[in-house]
Design a protein around this nucleic acid. Structure first.
Lengths: 233, 233
DNA sequence: ATTTCGATGTATCAATCCGATACATCGAAA
DNA sequence: TTTCGATGTATCGGATTGATACATCGAAAT
């Protein structure tokens, strides 16, 4: 769950933990505030499993942090890079970058079925936020899976909420929830429509850049169109 | 969080665990599927703290009544029961009922500020589902607190999502999220309006049944109008 | 100039929740 | 008679949270 988010951000560029949190909060509205108590353990997990690699940059005080940092000139580097937002100094920082294994894991997680459980909204939203890395067909499948999920929920909700014994507040809550779900479905329908049109256009158009939604992304759905569907473990 | 939901249900009538889960799922649409892995520990917690009391039903004679903390060999015990030790047992069921202490805890939890964290929607929805147990003023405060929360979120979201570098899918996600929040706020405005009118009516009307939204509820907001805000431990 | 204060940055802890799983009974369909 | 799905209680491992701790930095306040 969090792994997917982290790998998705690191897919674009390397980052340190605090920055990952900031991006998650600011860029994707999801994960309003990811806790460090889940972020750092997740990073450790990913590092342990070889999905990300870390380069530590300078500690001045107490602990003899393993100085295996492949980079030498922090001081020169910090001045040179002051243009960006992510620049830092010698304050102890661990910069994470994704590995090849991590990229494979990312695509696997992204393509995998999202859990139908408690926070399915987050799970779906997260995948949609990285949908540009999916092949057009997988993208469409994601949207339709979500649509089916919401439709199913709506059906069972209506059966249940038909109860007349609910008090005013609970009834209003259920009704509003139903409306919201319908709103979501309508939104998904628009997205699905757009996807279908895009795919139709790309078919008539030959194989132009029609399935690329973000030209800045060097992948734009070619890596996965050719990958085998069973994709190993 | 879950404690509030459990106590809220037991406030109305006694129940066993499975039934609590069913009601949570069917009656309140929230908590789509509460896990037993959280429900049963929560019930144990509440029992240990004295908020609920349990009566085991099912033994032909309620003789066994094993000490509630016995965690030595449940599985072995169940097997033994089946093999022939205590026979004729109806299906084991634990019926939970709320205690006076539990009622106090419920009101305290219900009145307490909801966390602004990850699943604030659930936290608010849960409180709204039990809003009939709140005094009119506390009810109004709950709604307005939620409104302020959403407004705040909307403001910060707009500042952030102004970024133009988002791809199509992420942008659509953020936009839809913003719309949903606005929809929620409009809904809250309707609820707040209704509450205000009800209060105004009850003031001009004297002290008729104007603030009771559910006549079947014997409390209807008198117990908490007189409770001190600092409410002990 | 020095203190104060908030943002940056990494990290751990207890509590909680979830999903999976196990075990067991029951009624009804096959 | 067996099978099967609903009912019912319970535990386990893993993930997430909120709180807390520690430390450095930049800038405003004194």
């Amino acid at each position: 769950m969090l792994d997917l988010a982290i790998l998705g951000l690191l897919f674009e560029q390397e980052m340190h933990g605090y920055e990952i949190r900031r991006r998650l909060r600011d860029e994707l509205g999801l994960f309003a505030n990811i806790s460090f108590g889940s972020l750092y353990p997740a990073l450790s997990r990913l590092e342990r499993s070889g999905a990300v690699a870390v380069t530590e940059s300078g500690g001045t005080s107490s602990a003899p942090l393993l100085s295996t940092g492949s980079l030498g000139g922090e001081r020169a580097g910090l001045r040179a890079r002051r243009s960006g937002a992510t620049l830092g100094t010698k304050r102890s920082r661990k910069v994470y970058r994704i590995t090849g294994q991590g990229r494979a894991l990312f695509e696997q997680l992204l393509e995998g079925e999202e859990p139908a459980g408690a926070d399915d909204a987050r799970s779906f939203g997260l995948r949609l936020a990285f949908a540009r890395h999916l092949a057009p067909s997988a993208r469409l499948a994601l949207l339709e899976r979500r649509r089916a999920q919401l439709t199913r929920r709506l059906a069972t909700d209506l059966v249940r909420a038909s109860g007349d014994r609910l008090d005013v507040y609970t009834r209003s809550l259920v009704e509003h929830s139903t409306e919201s779900t319908e709103h979501d479905i309508a939104w998904l329908d628009r997205l699905i429509d757009a996807e279908r049109q895009k795919q139709a256009a790309s078919r008539t158009d030959g194989a132009r850049s029609a399935d690329s939604t973000d030209p800045s992304d060097p992948h734009s759905g070619d890596a996965m169109t050719s990958s085998s569907p069973t994709g190993a473990s």
